[in-house]
């Protein structure tokens, strides 16, 4: 049996810890989708040359993808795949359509609200309102410190 799970990501430590927690507790194989929620670009040229792939490529940091690799190496038989999806809309319907298209079985949320980044938004309220089943994980209260090293943080933070 396989399950597709969705984790909203802001490329901080929180989604990595969620992934670690889910992988550690899951009994089935997982296909992981990291959902990056960001507003559509404002400028006409950006819209003209709009490419979801490029936006995601620009957003995913090396540390974050290395963190993913660490967790994937820890649970190679559990985590079958990891991919990134872009989401622009701020409506429940749009989210449900997106979830249906990607065949999402469950969304994983953190209790603590995500730290807001430029241009990105936290989809947690939308997910809570939608019909997609979701699970909230109580991570240890974790102070967001951007000057700290993300990879180091992954090892240091115990769930």
């Amino acid at each position: 049996m396989r399950k597709t799970i969705l984790i909203p990501t802001d490329f901080t430590i929180t989604p990595l810890l969620l992934l670690k927690h889910v992988a550690a507790t899951s009994a089935v194989e997982l296909d992981v989708i990291f959902l990056y929620c960001t507003s559509l670009p404002d400028s006409i040229t950006d819209l003209l040359f709009y490419s979801p792939k490029k936006i995601i490529e620009a957003a995913v940091t090396t540390a974050f993808s290395e963190g993913c690799a660490v967790i994937q190496n820890k649970y190679p038989e559990k985590i079958q795949s990891i991919r990134f999806e872009l989401f622009h809309a701020r409506s429940v319907d749009a989210f449900q359509i997106m979830a249906e298209m990607n065949g999402i079985d469950e969304a994983i949320l953190a209790h603590t609200p995500a730290a807001s980044r430029k241009q990105s938004f936290d989809p947690a309220p939308i997910i809570r309102k939608s019909a997609v089943p979701f699970r909230e994980v109580d991570l240890e209260s974790h102070a967001y410190a951007p000057e700290r090293d993300l990879l180091t943080e992954l090892f240091v933070s115990a769930v």
Partner: peptide
């Protein structure tokens, strides 16, 4: 002192805390 090990696809990471 906590010593953790992990590895990405091309590196091994050791963290001493």
């Amino acid at each position: 002192v906590k010593l953790s090990i992990g590895s990405t696809d091309d590196s091994v990471i050791v963290v001493v805390q």
